[in-house]
Design a protein around this nucleic acid. Structure first.
Lengths: 189, 189
DNA sequence: GTCTATAGAGGGATAGAC
DNA sequence: GTCTATCCCTCTATAGAC
């Protein structure tokens, strides 16, 4: 993971990884079989560690605004999920690894969203499972954008924050507005 | 672009490209100087061609729903922008190419959004420039997700469509609800 | 488990004939 | 402009000593 973070997933080779680890190149094949399997193992390990480390934090998220704030703390820490997803386009083995790592995150997000939406006017706007995927897509896209243009990532995050704030503001509206929103949501389905 | 589409950006080499073109490998260096410069040139050409081909279609987009529908027609056609963005993480030269291609798309989106928002209750929710970046991030993220899980891409697109439909529905509300929304938006800024 | 050594392949880039 | 031929590099993976 250190070599991926520093030089990108394209620079990962048995030699570069071994050099960072201070061991011999042949050990990669002894322990993992191939370089790709090493990468898969690294991501599996990383994903499990990250999820475990943030589960407590996610449990305390009870509003959309808090979810965005939580995502902001993750920026930079999830360093190489977008490169992995892009590499998956070419390599089906990496694709499986990416899918598994993403599925774990999406499941966590879905649990949080289900909890938040249950008490919101926006409940019923979309299936929580679909919504979780959309939220993941938005954050991944922002991170992807940030790779070439950090200011664009800021913009995207700011807008997501604004949308969350608006959603929270809608929950604070009076009964007339809430009824109108409920009806509008029902019609959009 | 054909080799990138088929085998991924990682499989691009002077030899593979030359083979697809039916010419000699050395010509890559004669015409482009290096493989990276060839890739940059290919993306610059592709981006210009795509934008030009869709500018007329974008000019006819006058609602958020139509924008989502337009984006749906683009799926699969913008084949390798996400791999390029991911590769940009490693290679600054590709990063410049990706930034330029993205900037063109974002400018187009911003023009459309500015037009749409001017007639919407949601005007003032966010700066159109920021909003355009967020929209681009959402679509890129959905495409990225689709690379490993096509169903997840469908989910993300469905939710984006729902949000657009809700936004349109809000514009059809009566004066009481509109005033409440305006006030809520003002407060979230 | 860790190392050296090496086979075998692919790739970037250049020289020089035509 | 297009080709052949070639240099030199890095890479994956294996064999085999320790």
């Amino acid at each position: 993971m250190a070599t991926i973070r520093e030089h990108g997933i394209g620079a990962v080779s048995a030699r570069t990884v071994a050099a960072v680890a201070g061991v011999n190149q042949a050990l990669v094949f002894y322990h993992f079989g191939s370089v790709r399997e090493l990468v898969v193992a690294a991501f599996r390990d990383e994903a499990a560690r990250q999820i475990a480390g943030h589960r407590a934090g996610l449990a305390e998220v009870t509003s959309l605004g808090a979810l965005v704030a939580f995502a902001a703390t993750l920026r930079g820490e999830s360093p190489a999920l977008t490169p992995l997803l892009a590499a998956a386009h070419t390599d089906p083995l990496l694709g499986e690894a990416a899918k598994a790592a993403l599925a774990e995150w999406i499941a966590e997000i879905e649990a949080v969203l289900t909890r938040i939406l249950a008490a919101s006017v926006l409940d019923g706007l979309a299936d929580p499972a679909d919504l979780a995927r959309a939220v993941a897509a938005a954050f991944l896209g922002a991170e992807l954008l940030g790779g070439v243009d950090p200011l664009a990532e800021e913009s995207a995050f700011a807008v997501i924050g604004n949308l969350a704030a608006l959603a929270q503001a809608l929950d604070g509206q009076g009964p007339v507005v809430r009824r109108a929103l409920k009806a509008a949501i029902k019609r959009t389905r």
